[in-house]
C-alpha cells in the first residue's frame, strides 16, 4: 500500500473487497435485488404509478405502500373497483401492470408474450410479477431468519466465550447437538405438518441456523477476552453487559458477517425448496419456489421452470460471492 493516509479498519476492508471484481459485481447485484424488492410495488402493480382521475392527481402505486403498512386506506370506489376499469385523463402504468397474486383465469399457462413478458402460471398469474414479489419474499426470509439466527447465535456465543467454564461446556454441547441435527428434515416436518405460515418458516430456519454464528462469536470472545483492554475494563468495574457489547462484540463482528451472508443464501435456498415441495408459505403467496413447483404440473411450460430457477440461482450465487468477498477482504493473511 502506497497510501500514506491513515485508514480506518472498515475502509481497508472495503479497499480489499474492491479487488475482487466478482464479489463487487455480486454486491451490486444484491443491492439491485434489494431495490427491486423495495420498489416492487412501482414496477409491478395493478394500479397506475401516476394518474389523473376526475381531475385529481394521484400516485396510487406509491400509496399502496402506505396501505400495506396500515398508515392510510383506499377510499370509496378505489377500494372496490378494478383500477384498470377506470377512465383516466392521463395515466402511467407500471412496467408490469399486474400484481403477483392477480388471477387471470382467461390466460392460464400462457407462454411469454408482449402481454405477459415471462408468461403466466396455471391460474393465469403473471410470472414476472411473481418474480418481483418473490424477490421481496426471499429477501425478507433471508433477513428475518438470519436475524433470528444472529440473535441466538451471538447471544449464546457471547455467553460461552465470555464466561467460559461450565457455561462454555454446556453451550458447546448444545451447539454440537444442534449441528448433528438433520435440520432440513426438521424444517420439513414443521412446514409440512403445521399450518402454512411464512413466519413459521423463517423461525424454523433461524432456530436451526445459528450454530455457525455462535461458534464464531465464541471463538472470537475466547481470543479477545484475555487481552489487556478487556482486563482493563473489568478492573474499572464495568458491568459484564457493557464489556460484552461495547468492547468485545464489535471485534467479533467481522466473521459473523461472513456467516450471515452465507446464511442468507442458504435460507433463501431452504425456503424455495419448501415452496417447491408445496410446504411453507401460504398457498396464495407467490414465491420463486412456488412458481417452480408449477413446472412439475405442466411440463411443457418451460418458462415456469427456467425463470424462477434462474432467480434463485442468481440470488444465491450473489450472496455466496458476497460472503466469499468479505471473507477474502477480512483475511489478514491475504492482506498486501
Amino acid at each position: 500500500m502506497t497510501q500514506k493516509k491513515t485508514q480506518s479498519y472498515w475502509g481497508l476492508v472495503w479497499q480489499q473487497f474492491q479487488k475482487n471484481r466478482l464479489s463487487v459485481g455480486a454486491f451490486y447485484l444484491v443491492l439491485f435485488l434489494i431495490a427491486v424488492a423495495t420498489f416492487g410495488n412501482l414496477i409491478s402493480n395493478n394500479k397506475p404509478v401516476f394518474c389523473i382521475y376526475e381531475g385529481d392527481v394521484m400516485f396510487p402505486a406509491f400509496k399502496d405502500y402506505g396501505v400495506s403498512l396500515g398508515i392510510t386506506e383506499w377510499q370509496g370506489t378505489f377500494a372496490i373497483k378494478d383500477w384498470k376499469d377506470l377512465k383516466y385523463d392521463s395515466v402511467i402504468w407500471p412496467l408490469v401492470p399486474y400484481k403477483a397474486s392477480s388471477v387471470d383465469l382467461m390466460n392460464p399457462v400462457a407462454a411469454p408474450s408482449s402481454e405477459h413478458f415471462l408468461g403466466t402460471d396455471e391460474t393465469g398469474r403473471d410470472v414476472l410479477a411473481g418474480l418481483i414479489e418473490g424477490a421481496s419474499i426471499s429477501l425478507s426470509i433471508g433477513l428475518v431468519s438470519m436475524g433470528v439466527a444472529l440473535t441466538i447465535g451471538i447471544f449464546l456465543g457471547c455467553l460461552a466465550g465470555y464466561y467460559g467454564g461450565w457455561v462454555d461446556i454446556a453451550l458447546s454441547r448444545l451447539i454440537e447437538v444442534v449441528i448433528t441435527f438433520p435440520s432440513f428434515f426438521l424444517i420439513i416436518i414443521i412446514a409440512a405438518l403445521y399450518e402454512s405460515s411464512i413466519w413459521l418458516v423463517m423461525l424454523a430456519i433461524g432456530l436451526t441456523g445459528w450454530t455457525g454464528i455462535a461458534r464464531f462469536t465464541r471463538g472470537e470472545f475466547l481470543r479477545v477476552r484475555n487481552q489487556e483492554f478487556v482486563s482493563a475494563a473489568q478492573a474499572l468495574g464495568f458491568r459484564d453487559t457493557k464489556i460484552i457489547f461495547r468492547h468485545i462484540l464489535p471485534n467479533a463482528l467481522a466473521p459473523v458477517l461472513i456467516s450471515a451472508a452465507f446464511g442468507i443464501a442458504s435460507a433463501i435456498l431452504t425456503e424455495s425448496s419448501l415452496s417447491f415441495l408445496g410446504f411453507g408459505v401460504p398457498p396464495t403467496q407467490v414465491t420463486w419456489g412456488s412458481i417452480l413447483a408449477g413446472a412439475r404440473g405442466s411440463t411443457y411450460a418451460w418458462w415456469l421452470a427456467i425463470f424462477p430457477g434462474l432467480m434463485v440461482f442468481i440470488t444465491v450465487t450473489a450472496y455466496n460471492l458476497l460472503g466469499e468477498g468479505i471473507r477474502d477482504a477480512l483475511d489478514p493473511k491475504l492482506k498486501t
Binding site: I80, S101, S102, V103, A192, L193, Y194, E195, S196, G278, F279, P282, P283, T284
Partner: peptide, 17 residues
C-alpha cells in the same frame, strides 16, 4: 378468494395436511 375480496370479505387460504 379474489372475488370475495372485491366485496370486502377476507378469506385466508391456509395449507394443511
Amino acid at each position: 378468494q379474489q372475488d370475495l375480496e372485491k366485496v370486502g370479505i377476507k378469506m385466508n387460504l391456509v395449507n394443511m395436511t
